[in-house]
Nucleic acid binder design. Structure first.
Length: 480
RNA sequence: CGGGAUGUAGCCUAGCGGCUAAGGCGCCUGCUUUGGGAGCAGGAGAGCGGUGGUUCGAAUCCACUCAUCCCGACCA
């Protein structure tokens, strides 16, 4: 089944598709831009779900579910929202053999259907905050698709919260941004920048959009998660009011935030190499695979020994044993490297005699001989080290591809070679931003935060385009 | 929706007017193997994206059409 990956270094996106398909994570379905996620890819998604759900619950959020189909009129209630999403809506016009009175759109995001319900659920400040998340699929009919990064239908998590004050909503927006940052860095070993989107890049209907941005191995940027402060926009559009402690009537304050199956794309494009996937231990559905090496006469002894090791490791590890004798050890080595399993443990007759096994790291390929008696302790330490090393490797790459410039020409030059994140002054004018995009294809990925506030530019900074005084230093980059 | 490219077996590719469409990977059978994607022998599987033309003869030429990929515009 698996064929050798033939990376094309000059064509990173093709290399990426090769990794995805060779590692059997996903295929395109016979529906424009729709993805079939195979079990191996879905296992990664389940690990992401598990990790994020844990963090959401720590912060008091609960899961719920809202419908796939949304009356078209709902989408139209918020002016910017409808403008932003209209071009990419898939619409159901017929059902039950009849033309519908009102078309139903397949959710591109659920703000509108959720806020139509929040109107019924919220009357008093006692009902707030309302902290709900849902795991679901959404459809956005994009012009161009790419496996995991931009498919017509994708899986995601979308949180929708309602609060009594503007400050609370802002706090929530930033709290979730920090959850996303921690998840990306601690679980996925993907270093991210966090910050604010410029107005031209913000969510349709939001007051402010915050995001995390990761750098892929070709130095392009990937938006890995967004957290929006919606202000009172949706509360006003859906007339959601509540009685305050002081008996006044006010519209509630809202946030929404999400990450998608794109995270799997980010994982691949951050860590994979020419041998295939590299999955950080904390996210790996299987952390350790044991490969016994035997001849016919030694099969029983070696597999018995390997089974004992597996059983000993089971309580603390996600471990599997591949004692199938249809494939050779060499085949298995390549296969598990392709799958990105962090540690492979080899056990052969020679090891058995010495009471040892051989651990092989996926990230470095290093072989480590260790006594079976110490296996649990040593393997755990190795997994921890792999987790840290992967993060460090990605961080070092990002650091070596991050620059600060003061001249527009420098910005252009660095974008072409070697590419990356480029910090520069910006006056705040959308026209300057647009000009950079038009001339270089780079966009403002984010405006970095200083603590929880936007960072201000050093004294005397000027806009890279117009030369006027720059209020902020922002991060430019070419994005997926 | 513009510009470019490609559709031949499950996958990758060769063939670019002519004789039973060729090879590699994978698959099946048997034997031998097993510490880096094993070896040998045998075997199954396609009528060349679709439609319509040109021709004695089309996978090869022409027209239309469909699909996919790449580069733009749009986006998580």
């Amino acid at each position: 089944m698996a064929e050798k990956i033939t990376p094309r270094a000059t064509d990173y996106s093709q290399w990426y598709i090769d990794i995805v398909t060779n590692a059997r994570l996903a295929d395109y379905a016979p529906v424009k831009g729709c993805m079939v996620i195979r079990p191996r890819g879905y296992a990664l998604w389940e690990m992401i779900q598990q990790g994020l759900d844990g963090l959401f619950k720590e912060t008091g959020h609960v899961n719920a579910y809202f419908p796939l189909l949304i009356p078209e009129s709902f989408i139209k209630k918020e002016a910017e929202h409808v403008e932003g999403f209209s071009p990419e809506l898939a619409v159901v016009t017929h059902a039950g053999g009849e033309k519908l009175e009102e078309p139903l759109v397949i959710r591109p995001t659920s703000e509108t259907i959720i806020w139509s319900m929040y109107k019924k659920w919220i009357q008093s400040y006692r009902d707030l905050p309302l902290l709900i998340n849902q795991w679901c699929n959404v459809v956005r009919w994009e012009k161009r698709t790419r496996l995991f990064l931009r498919t017509s239908e994708f899986l995601w998590q979308e949180g929708h919260t309602a609060h009594a004050t503007a400050d609370e909503a802002e706090e929530e927006t930033l709290r979730i941004l920090d959850v996303y940052r921690r998840f990306a860095e601690d679980f996925m070993a993907i270093p991210v920048l966090h910050g604010l989107k410029s107005d031209s890049e913000k969510f349709a209907g939001a007051v402010r959009t915050y995001c995390i941005e990761a750098m892929m191995q070709d130095a392009r940027s990937l938006q890995a998660g967004t957290s929006h402060n919606l202000g009172q926009n949706f509360a006003k559009a859906f007339d959601v009011t509540f009685q305050t402690r002081t008996k006044a009537l006010d519209h509630v304050w809202a946030t929404s935030w999400g990450v998608s199956t794109r995270l799997i794309g980010a994982l691949i494009m951050t860590h994979a190499d020419d041998k295939g996937l590299v999955v950080p231990p904390r996210l790996a559905p299987v952390e350790v695979v044991i490969v016994p090496i035997f001849k016919n006469e030694t099969r029983d002894a070696v597999t018995g020994f390997a089974q004992k090791l597996r059983d000993a490791l089971k309580p603390g590890f996600r471990v599997t044993l591949d004692d199938d004798d249809q494939n050779t050890p060499g085949w298995k080595f390549s296969e598990y490297e392709l799958q990105g399993i962090p540690l492979r443990v080899e056990i052969g007759p020679r090891d058995m005699e010495k009471g040892q096994c051989v651990a092989v790291r996926r990230d470095t390929g290093e072989k480590i001989f260790l006594p079976v008696a110490e296996a649990a302790v040593r393997l755990r330490a190795l997994l921890d080290d792999i987790q840290k090393s992967l993060f460090k490797r990605a961080l070092d790459f990002r650091t070596s591809h991050t620059f600060r410039v003061t001249e527009y020409e420098e910005l252009k030059k660095l974008l072409d070679d070697p590419g990356g994140f480029i910090e520069a002054g910006w006056c705040g004018d959308a026209a300057c931003e647009a000009r950079v995009k038009e001339e270089t294809k780079a966009t403002i990925r984010l405006i970095p935060l200083d603590g929880t506030r936007m960072s201000t530019a050093p004294e005397g900074s000027t806009c890279i385009i117009c030369g006027k005084s720059a209020r902020r230093l922002v991060i430019f980059g070419r994005a997926y």
